[in-house]
Simulated assay, not measured.
Amino acid sequence: MSIPRIHIVTLGVSDLARSRRFYEALGWKASSASNEGIVFLKGGAGVLALYGRQALADDAQLEDRPSGFAAISIARNASSKAEVDQWFNAAVNAGATAIKSPQAVFWGGYSGYVADPDGHLWEFAFNPFFVFDARGNLALPD
């Protein structure tokens, strides 16, 4: 059996150009594999893809039914509280909506939430119990 991996997270977006500008302002780099219908953003070991919301619904053969809270967040883990603050402020300055300002949390860390221009929820967190490997990837214990 192969090792489970997440290779691509695809976000359905209402305005591809706007979303590309937003994520590039946060330091993501678009791949030359991108085209007018999809943007592939390189980030560490994984890829964040931006795809038209309706096109994504059509591809999955689902009805697009926008709602409030989608019960999912994407997390980016920092090496310090200061880095969380830096990422949070950069996202808000790039057009994100502040959802929860960075603060100490019950599990012993520090985190805050923003929503991207399409409402996708991002958590920026510092977890003092997590370590990173030499490549900057989260190194969870076995």
Rank of each mutant, 00 (worst) to 15 (best):
W28C: 12
W28Y: 13
W28D: 02
S31R: 07
G37M: 04
G37H: 15
I38D: 00
V39G: 06
G43Y: 13
G44F: 15
A45S: 15
V47W: 09
A49E: 05
L50A: 13
Y51P: 07
R53E: 09
R53M: 14
L56I: 08
L56Q: 03
A60I: 14
L62V: 03
E63D: 01
D64V: 04
P66R: 10
P66A: 04
F69Q: 09
F69K: 02
F69N: 04
A70Q: 12
A71R: 07
I74D: 01
A75K: 08
R76M: 11
N77G: 02
N77L: 13
S80I: 06
K81E: 14
K81G: 12
A82F: 14
D85T: 02
Q86N: 09
Q86I: 08
F88Q: 00
A91H: 04
T97W: 00
I99H: 09
S101W: 05
A104F: 13
F106Q: 03
G108W: 05
G109N: 05
G109H: 06
Y110N: 00
G112V: 04
G112C: 04
G112K: 03
Y113I: 00
D118W: 05
G119L: 00
W122C: 02
A125T: 00
V131N: 03
V131D: 06
F132D: 04
F132V: 00
D133H: 11
A134V: 01
A134F: 13
